[in-house]
């Protein structure tokens, strides 16, 4: 159970995360006066007349929302996959969704499908990434679901194998790609939440929100699964269904996020572990707090990406540079007495 100090910490974590989201609206490469924007808005100006309003509404807000959704989604899927695979190293990308998605994007780049079409808010590159991620997810599911229960080992081995296959596919695409395409591809791989306008964010939100709600609803069952499938099944948990839902919904969420913002690493690994040190391991608390903290963390990384160096650092580099050392620090602080399986 949470002690009072822990409850305060959780509360602080949530406030800080929301604060970071708010800060990411104010801070950016261009300085925007929020007062100015507010005054313009009060004066009845539209975003076409006021440059401050325009930046705030057309650039900052969608960007912050994208970071929030991506961070929240990756952190939550990380919690789910760590429980599903019974492995502390599991991330949303462990099962190859991100690598397969990247291969999809690379193929679209090589065949110059860039502006070929747009469906439901997804460009050709994004749609191709999504399709390949789905293909990865389907193959793994078919392989692992031949028995009544999904075996964590089969999932892991199939995921790692498909991931390697997709990596070699990526190599092949790079081999074929012209130099200017190569630059675009590399940039895609580093991730970015620099989304302008609302079409993409709305598409992301519509796809991801129901997935997150479904995953959150599995919290109590994932606690039971932590003590083994037999004990969980004896308590009335439908283990095969829980595993299938966690895997499919988690992979779908990851695929959507990766197709929009690229394979941003580390969030799905470190946020669940960091939050666990504060909330303990009960998923009914861990999952919602990870959701908020993941969003806050990615907003923070995006602020650093925009401000730390002149120009803009790709966010995937920042998450790793900030997250890696912090995670190492956590490892020295906390003994992983759990995770013996």
């Amino acid at each position: 159970m949470l002690t009072r100090a822990r409850v305060l910490l959780v509360f602080a974590l949530i406030v800080v995360s929301l604060g970071l989201a708010a800060a990411s609206l104010m801070i950016g490469t261009e300085t925007v006066s929020v007062h100015q924007a507010w005054a313009d808005w009060r004066a009845g100006m539209t975003r076409y007349e006021s440059p401050s309003l325009s930046i705030l509404i057309n650039q900052r807000l969608p960007r912050t929302l994208a970071a929030l959704i991506a961070g929240a989604g990756l952190a939550l899927v990380g919690c789910g996959f760590q429980a599903l695979l019974r492995n502390p190293l599991a991330t949303p990308y462990t099962l190859g969704v991100a690598t397969a998605g990247s291969l999809g994007a690379y193929i679209a780049f090589v065949f110059e499908l860039g502006g070929a079409f747009r469906v439901l808010g997804f460009s050709a590159v994004e749609a191709s990434a999504l399709l390949f991620a789905w293909a990865d997810m389907t193959v793994i599911y078919l392989l692992a679901s031949r028995r009544a229960r999904l075996s964590p080992f089969v999932l892991l081995l199939a995921g790692v194998t498909l991931s390697m296959l997709a990596s070699s596919g990526i190599m092949l695409m790079r081999y074929f790609a012209s130099p200017d395409r190569l630059v675009m591809m590399e940039r895609w791989l580093m991730g970015g939440v620099d989304i302008v306008g609302y079409e993409a964010v709305v598409a992301l939100a519509i796809g991801v929100t129901p997935c997150l709600l479904i995953l959150l609803a599995q919290g109590g069952k994932l606690d039971q699964l932590g003590f083994g499938h037999e004990l969980a099944a004896g308590r009335g948990v439908n283990v095969p269904r829980l595993q299938a839902v966690t895997f499919l919904v988690g992979s779908l969420t990851t695929a959507l996020i990766v197709s929009k913002v690229g394979p941003i690493g580390f969030v799905g690994l470190i946020v669940p572990h960091a939050v666990r040190t504060v909330t303990g391991s009960r998923h009914r608390v861990l999952m919602p707090v990870s959701l908020v903290a993941g969003g806050g963390f990615l907003c923070f990384c995006d602020i650093v990406a925009r401000k730390a160096l002149p120009g803009e650092t790709p966010i995937g580099i920042v998450t790793a540079l900030l997250g890696g050392p912090f995670f190492l620090y956590l490892l020295t602080r906390r003994h992983f007495t759990d995770w013996q399986a």
């Binding site: 429980a83 019974r86 004990l231 391991s281």
Partner: peptide, 15 residues
């Protein structure tokens, strides 16, 4: 019915 399996290997630390 409650079932106590022969081997229970937890992965999370809980009180």
């Amino acid at each position: 019915l409650a079932f106590l399996p022969q081997a229970v290997v937890p992965i999370f630390s809980l009180s």
